[in-house]
Amino acid sequence: MKKPRNYKAMLSEIGPLLGLIFVFALFAALTPSAFTSFYNVKTILTQSVIIGIAAFGTTFIIVSEGIDLSVGSQIALTTVIVAAVLNLPGGDPGIFWPLLALAAGVLACTGVGAFNGFVITKFRIVPFIVTLGSMQIVRGIAKWIGKEQTVPTPDNWLTNLMLIDPSPSWLLFGPGVWLALALLVVSAALLKYTVLGRYTFAIGSNEQTARLCGVKVDRMKIVIYGLGGLLTGVAGVMQYSYLTVGDPTTAVGLELDIIAAVVIGGGSLSGGEGSVVGSIVGALIMAVLRNGSNMLGLPNYVQEIIIGAIIVGAVLIDQQKHRLRTAG
């Protein structure tokens, strides 16, 4: 069968990328030398790591027509758990203890995610409400473990992950950037080339169809929220690395930036649409805007207004595209 190339469909896939190139070019033109310096590019990439990795997980959740508002709290919980494990008696900052701390943090978030999924499917409560609740609960647990204050930690290799300049300089970027890149490849492949990803799309597009076709919808949702939690946990470890302390009050409201990244990247809150690559592009667009605005000396409120407009604008453009398609 001859395959006619669908240019409109292609455009909708690379739309966010064009947006990223546009804002990058715009700031490059406005602040030539400082903005495009290699150091600044590294800074932007490093600044996108945390939101980016969490956005990979949130992409799965949003594609399945869900939402997770507890992501910011989960990140705070991870930083506190990592710090707590590092401070355990008998702990030493060698290779092993930080690894254990990392695993504990990631596992805790996976558990929170799976628990969210369990409550959503078992008791048929909408995800917005369930995760609105767990946002508070998890934040409370983080404060409880951290005894309502920041938890200092001994020096260890986890704090090197988010360095802008890597220690062997031939790495070019910090380990966090490479890790995000690896997770990008893995999550993108998972969403696009596996049965898990296909079921995620099917559930988000039409849950009834998925059920009719024998998809075990409830079990899949728990897996999806668990996977979201796992990636959030990794993002939380990155946050710890950035802070170098456990902080139960960190990342308040960060889930909204993460959801914004997914939506700018083409994710639809009514499910069935979205891509991991789009989400990282969305995260980069926001990072570029913040960084460029700072370089230009624009006040904070200008950035907020611009980013808000972009979120609404991205969805607006997306809807127009759909209208064109269904009309044509």
């Binding site: 296909r198 799309f201 099917a202 597009s205 169809t209 998925a210 076709c213 998809v215 069935g272």
Partner: peptide
């Protein structure tokens, strides 16, 4: 409402089960 996942492609719908 149930038979098809309308915003997915024809082939995704065809093989979903």
């Amino acid at each position: 409402e149930e038979g098809l996942a309308l915003n997915l492609s024809l082939v995704f719908n065809l093989t979903l089960s």
